[in-house]
Simulated scan of single mutants.
Amino acid sequence: MNTAIPSGPPALTRGALRATATLRERIASGFYGTGDWLPTERALAEDLGVHRRVIRAAIDELVREGMISQKPHCRPVVGRPAETRMSTPDKEGPALPASNLIALIMWHGGGRLERAGTAQARIFWGVNDQLAEAGYHAVFLDLGRNPGAEEENALREAAHLNYAVNHGFGGVIFYPYAYRSNRTLVKWVSQHIPLITIDRVVSGVETNFVGVNNYQAMFEMTTQLLRQGHRRVAYITKNEPIHPVQDRLQGYIAAVRAAGAPQMVVSIPSTDNPEEPWRIVDAVFRLPEGERPTAAACFNDYTAVKLAEYLQRLGLSIPKDVALSGFDDIIQALPSGLGLTTVAQPYEEIGQRAAQLLLRRLDNPSIPAEFIEMPAQISLRESTPELTPGAD
Rank of each mutant, 00 (worst) to 15 (best):
T118P: 04
E289F: 12
Y302V: 14
A283N: 08
K71F: 04
A121E: 06
T20D: 08
P274K: 00
R42M: 10
A376K: 10
A178E: 11
V172W: 01
L195F: 02
P10Q: 05
P89C: 00
V50Q: 05
N300E: 11
Q250W: 14
R145C: 14
S325G: 04
I236D: 01
D301M: 08
R292I: 12
S325V: 01
K71G: 12
V284N: 03
D363I: 03
L387V: 10
P269M: 02
G15C: 14
T223H: 12
E152T: 09
I330R: 08
A116L: 04
S7Y: 07
A391K: 15
L23E: 09
A158C: 15
N153K: 07
G35V: 07
H73P: 00
V305G: 10
I318A: 03
V322G: 05
R257G: 07
E349G: 00
V210F: 08
S181G: 02
P277S: 05
T13I: 09
F219R: 15
Q191V: 00
A254C: 04
V172T: 02
E206C: 04
Q224L: 07
H137P: 01
D47Y: 13
T84C: 08
R286H: 15
L316Y: 14
G30R: 00
F219E: 06
G33W: 08
L17G: 11
F299R: 06
L316C: 07
V77P: 05
Y136I: 10
A103E: 02
K71A: 13
D328T: 10
I330H: 04
E25H: 05
F174E: 13
T40M: 02
A119T: 15
E289M: 11
P389G: 12
V265A: 08
V212L: 13
R248P: 00
T84L: 10
A323T: 07
T271C: 06
P319R: 09
N2P: 15
T207K: 09
R115T: 11
P147N: 07
G126C: 06
S379T: 14
T84F: 07
N162S: 10
W278Y: 14
T118H: 02
A308V: 13
D60T: 09
T184F: 06
L311N: 15
G135Y: 07
G229A: 03
R122G: 03
P9S: 13
D272P: 03
M218P: 01
N213E: 00
N208L: 01
D392N: 13
V78E: 05
P9G: 08
G110A: 08
V139H: 00
R232M: 06
I173Y: 06
T388W: 05
G8D: 14
L62N: 06
R361Y: 03
G339V: 04
R286S: 15
N208W: 09
I268Q: 15
R14K: 13
T34N: 11
P375L: 05
P39C: 10
G135R: 00
L143A: 11
G260Q: 02
L387F: 01
A82H: 06
V212F: 13
A255T: 11
Q130C: 13
G35R: 01
N213R: 12
M218I: 07
A45D: 09
Q312R: 15
Y177H: 12
V50W: 03
N146I: 10
I173E: 02
Q228D: 01
R361E: 03
I123D: 06
L101F: 00
A119W: 04
I372G: 00
